[in-house]
Amino acid sequence: MNWLIANESMIYILIMVIFLGFAVINKVPSVLHTPLMSHANAISGVVIIGAMIVMGQVEADNYLALGLGLLAVVTGMVNVVGGFAVTDRMLHMFKKKEAPKAEK
């Protein structure tokens, strides 16, 4: 129970962000589904911060932990950088609009 008390504010945030997330994303048109996914995927790379913290607290002679931590940092960073860059490329394509078409 101590854990619950210690993490009470985190749990409140968790609950509110769930609702916030649904509210913010709910209206994404299907044109943007792939970029949304790729963008969200990049944000999930925020776990890199955890990887840095874990790495920063490993003893300098614990090579197994260092190696695993390094792997976590690298994979997390690839996720972040690759994710945002690829989404940017995709959205750049969407921007290239042509002159209004006959449909109008």
Partner: peptide, 17 residues
């Protein structure tokens, strides 16, 4: 860490939607 929490949950919500 609230940044990780918020970022992660937002993605969870987006993926669920």
């Amino acid at each position: 860490n609230k940044v990780i929490l918020v970022g992660g949950i937002l993605v969870g919500a987006a993926g669920t939607i």
